[in-house]
Design a binder for these strands. Structure first.
Lengths: 215, 215
DNA sequence: CCACAACCTGACCATTCGGTCAACATAATT
DNA sequence: AATTATGTTGACCGAATGGTCAGGTTGTGG
């Protein structure tokens, strides 16, 4: 039994590796194309070309364009959720919100495509991930609002509506991904440098932390 | 000559009225459809149905789908530029930035479709209005940054990077339009009420104005 | 080595979309 | 009233797209 399982796992190794690698390549290409062209503007052929695979191969791994899109959106959602860990076990708003801003700015820089796909999905009425909004995101938001409210009650920060504070954090951090092209254009057509990203993060942190009365 | 011009103007009246009315109906429908489906996902047939006109009639007034889209984007851009008037002749950041936030929040509420079309256009690399970004928007930004820098130099507000402060203002105010569906979902599926819009605006104003050290 | 399953892909199809056009209707001009 | 200019529309077309499938290749277990 043990041996069988072992052998089975090893034998399956090659196949699963092929599958995992191809799915990864396809998802990466899809994320980029969906971000740059939107769901309607993206074509399976374009994604296939970018992935270096024949179009029919995409349909082998993902039955429909919508299924592929759905997976891309879900992957982004997962990354977002994990970013909130820094929020939880912080002693106060300075560390909690400060680290959350840093984490989200970092995601905006490293996953600009994903952020755009999410924005596009929500702007179009969230036809694919509406259930996520109503369950996971709603619970997540309620939990973080409670944390902020507790900080307020404990006198650790000024009484700011927790809900709108969260919206402000999302808006500012994601703006650097979603409107990256505009920001780049206003930066003489060049992407933000390391120093400029750091400057942006610090400015956001400073204004927000002072804005909630903890500086 | 005068009479001729007068007669000509009156005679032309009916025709120009028809043209203006139809263009308005088409542009309104197009703004909504482009916002909800993106450029690629929008179809001329859908816009025609929403406008209550046969599809061929759209092509009589706008030669191509792209020309129609271009006009929609330009209209939004105009609205945005006018919103900055409140910025200019303000004695200091409290009035200037405060009023600017109010004006932009108001636009987000009354023109959510336009804001989404703009966001979508920028996210896709601004293929249609890149020249606007490089000329009008760049000049506008430079001008407002100078105003903010002057306020800083005069000791009227804390030294905050003017560029990133502008980005923060754009991000937060437009978020309420672009992510309106998400906000609505997190508000028990209901649109924000008058009171809630007011609360959002006040929260943004409070955090920002305190964040730049003027409260 | 054989048989089975998983993987790959060129060719093909039905549908949809942006755009055209000829014929017609209405308003303006002479 | 006749003519011209402007507005209207159903029918149509070529191109592109999402998706299918039969037949092939490669890996896997016995």
């Amino acid at each position: 039994m043990n041996e069988n399982a072992q052998v089975s796992r090893i034998s399956k190794g090659r196949r699963t590796e092929i599958r995992r690698e191809n799915e990864r390549v396809i998802l990466d290409a899809a994320e980029k194309v969906f971000a740059e062209a939107g769901f309607g503007g993206a074509t399976m052929q374009l994604i296939a070309d970018m992935a270096g695979l024949p179009k029919a191969n995409l349909h082998y791994y993902f039955p429909t364009k919508e299924a592929l899109y759905r997976q891309v959106v879900r992957n982004i959602f997962e990354i977002w959720l994990h970013a909130a860990d820094s929020f939880d076990d912080a002693p106060g708003p300075v560390e909690g919100i400060g680290r959350y801003i840093e984490a989200k700015m970092d995601i905006s820089r490293r996953h600009p495509h994903g952020s755009k796909v999410w924005a596009s999905e929500v702007m179009h009425g969230a036809p694919v991930i509406q259930d996520y909004l109503e369950t996971t995101l709603r619970d997540w938001t309620a939990g973080r609002m409670a944390v902020i409210q507790r900080w307020i009650d404990e006198g650790k920060m000024a009484p700011v509506d927790p809900r709108h504070l969260l919206y402000m954090l999302w808006a500012m951090t994601q703006h650097y991904a979603d409107f990256g092209h505009q920001i780049e254009t206003l930066n003489h057509g060049r992407p933000l440098s390391d120093a400029q990203w750091h400057e942006a993060t610090e400015t956001v942190k400073t204004v927000i932390l002072r804005g909630i009365g903890v500086i």
